[in-house]
Design a protein around this nucleic acid. Structure first.
Lengths: 186, 186
DNA sequence: GATAATGTGTCAATGAAGCTGACCCAACAC
DNA sequence: GTGTTGGGTCAGCTTCATTGACACATTATC
């Protein structure tokens, strides 16, 4: 079930210089439905706690880079300080995230997850892990690698740079090849 | 936590039965950034017209299935009648969408795009086409097919059914194989 | 040492996009 | 004639984003 039969229908390698209309329509649908259902699991958990997707994003990125500054987090999320505040402040007050002054620059508030925060992040994480694992298993390893390459291509240059930074400085690890991304900026 | 010395790239075919932590973290990042930047282009156009992403979705799905009923559209979008109304009513009033009573059941309002609506939808479409085409070209045909398979796997069963229906009754056309997908429902 | 410039927090107002509940009307079905 | 269905609408609420303005502590600079 992993590999496509001889069907070879839509022809991924047809004539990529001109993206046929139906091919893009399909991509639009896939991204809309796929992203929606991908986030549905965590959303349900968060709703019980009176939180939303924005809280998850903060937990996710703070968990990935403990000690991140508020400014860095703002840059990653691409939102304003005020928008972040409305999500971050409650997370701190309810004991999911801690702030400690930076050692070099004491104006900074370095953010980290508390045990409580890590526990919640992990709970959300596990929910998504199962979902993604299922999709990966159905699709097979080759498809997974392709998925990563395409998704990376859909990202703007800034997001790519952030991703590389967040991934711990192994830039090409996800894209395999295709380094040339000279995207014209979103 | 960010450094994984053992990391020989990411190895899509490593051991898919247990999705390694970093693999899912990567998927989360890819989907977040990728989806955001995928929608950024149309969002900018829509903002100039005082519209949002929700309007685009209506234009998209009505454009795909002219004569769709309100109820079908609601099922596809997965939102409430009131939420749709707030988006659809202005679209009708401003001449992007037309409603005409159904021939069999005159209670129904069959939705279609006007010329103005088609023009806007096409403008949004072209913007995304270039973006996606660039990503497809960088990634290559094999990756594109993999992308489709994984995205389809991320969708819940209902979304898959809707996708197949919307695609004009060629169910396996995108996924190749993997029909089984007994997903436990979102 | 006085004066920027930064990093962060916060108040107030606004908008987009979702939600629920309640109610209405026209048309179909029995 | 009665009940159900497809659709519309009013009222109110929530989340997540926005802008503008201001406050405060700290660092950097002249």
């Amino acid at each position: 079930m992993s590999d496509a039969p001889d069907a070879k229908p839509v022809g991924a390698g047809r004539q990529l210089l001109f993206l046929r209309e139906e091919e893009l329509r399909l991509a639009q649908d896939l991204l809309f439905f796929g992203y929606r259902d991908f986030t549905a699991g965590p959303d349900a958990i968060l709703a019980e706690l009176g939180m939303g997707r924005a809280h998850h994003r903060v937990l996710h990125f703070v968990g990935r880079r403990p000690g991140i500054t508020v400014g860095e987090l703002l840059a990653i999320l691409g939102i304003t300080k005020q928008s972040l505040g409305r999500v971050l402040t409650p997370l701190v007050e309810e004991g999911y995230v801690t702030q400690q002054p930076g050692r070099n620059d004491r104006r900074q508030r370095l953010l980290s997850l508390t045990e409580k925060g890590e526990a919640l992040e992990r709970r959300l994480f596990e929910r998504q892990r199962e979902w993604v694992m299922q999709a990966y298993r159905e699709a097979g390893p080759v498809a997974v690698e392709g998925f990563r390459r395409v998704m990376r291509g859909l990202m703007g240059p800034e997001a790519r740079a952030q991703l590389d930074r967040a991934s711990g400085g192994a830039p090409g690890s996800a894209s395999g090849g295709a380094p040339g991304g000279k995207r014209s900026a979103a």
